[in-house]
């Protein structure tokens, strides 16, 4: 397709091409620069001890083991709440409402609004609703549930897309055979939509793992090993923030933590992309 547009030697044309190439190189350069700084700064502090020992002296020395545990717990709580609720809502939106039904439209519209709410505002909401009104205090569970509210619209959107990608013949054939809706959903539609659901889940996981602002005033700063979900615990992102802003001499471990976080997110996002493409290809081949 591209060859159909001839290269013509007019000054404006050449000028535009040069500008576009320069802009692309500039953006790529900055991207490589950021990645290089994080890797170069972080590698020296990464070691087995860094991953397996708790932080000492506010994180200046020691490791990040307790921080990793808190992060994992927060993320599990987040997905544990968002995924079942999200799948059920997505099923309702894709299987039981047409586009025109007012209730489905209302739910979709409010999820669109929720998707736009800034993350610090989720933090405000969580600090009132989960920490105060529900009495959870600064805790892993309050942080995890706040994140669940935040990722809910993202997860529902991609789960719904996954469900809608299941061929319509599945439903009509099953209906013709007189199979109950329940059986159709659990035996046919959900299994067929698994790749879409998983890529939505991983997308939400990546978004939650990258979040800081919503956690500052919900799960808090405590860097000890949490003993239950009602203890406060700091996530990896909050750890980086605290080391960089509040701990003089914390930069080397902030670099190390940033490298761990970026590698973690690379794996998560890479998996989402891979599953998205893989699942899509399977569907295309089938049809």
């Amino acid at each position: 397709m591209k060859s159909l547009i001839h290269r013509q030697r007019k000054p404006a044309d050449a000028f535009a091409a040069v500008i576009l190439w320069v802009m692309a190189m500039a953006v790529s350069f900055v991207f490589v620069w950021i990645v290089f700084s994080i890797v170069a700064g972080g590698l020296s502090s990464i070691s087995r001890e860094f991953l397996t020992k708790p932080p000492e002296f506010s994180g200046r020395s020691g490791g990040i083991s307790t921080v990793l545990v808190s992060t994992a717990v927060i993320l599990m709580i987040c997905l544990g709440a968002a995924v079942p609720l999200g799948i059920a809502t997505a099923l309702f939106l894709s299987e039981f409402t047409g586009n025109d039904e007012w209730f489905g439209r209302l739910v979709r519209r409010s999820l669109d609004v929720l998707a736009g709410v800034p993350s610090i505002v989720f933090g405000l909401f969580g600090s009132v609703f989960f920490c105060r009104v529900l009495g959870m205090g600064y805790s892993l569970i309050a942080g995890g549930l706040t994140l669940a509210c935040m990722v809910l619209p993202i997860f529902i959107r991609s789960a719904e897309a996954g469900l809608r990608a299941v061929p319509e013949e599945y439903r009509s054939t099953a209906a013709a055979l007189g199979i109950s809706r329940r059986a159709v959903i659990f035996r046919l539609i959900l299994p067929a939509a698994v790749p879409g659901l998983i890529s939505g889940l991983i997308l939400s996981l990546g978004r939650a793992a990258a979040e800081t602002a919503a956690l500052l005033y919900t799960s808090g700063y405590v860097d000890r090993m949490p003993e239950s979900v009602f203890d406060s615990g700091r996530s990896l992102t909050v750890h980086i923030y605290d080391l960089a802003m509040n701990v003089p001499g914390g930069n080397s471990h902030a670099y190390g933590s940033a490298l761990v976080l970026v590698v973690l997110l690379l794996i998560i996002n890479g998996a989402a992309t891979w599953i998205g493409e893989h699942g899509l290809r399977r569907r295309l081949i089938r049809s």
Binding site: G86, T89, L91, F96, F103, S110, L111, V128, V133
Partner: peptide, 30 residues
């Protein structure tokens, strides 16, 4: 099994109410 279907529909509808209600809750508490 239409009673099972009805039960499922209500569970799903309830979930949709909760998911949509989060927005309302956020704005209400703000």
């Amino acid at each position: 099994d239409s009673s099972g279907d009805r039960w499922l529909l209500w569970v799903l509808r309830g979930s949709a109410v909760i998911a949509g209600g989060v927005t309302l809750l956020v704005i209400l508490f703000l």
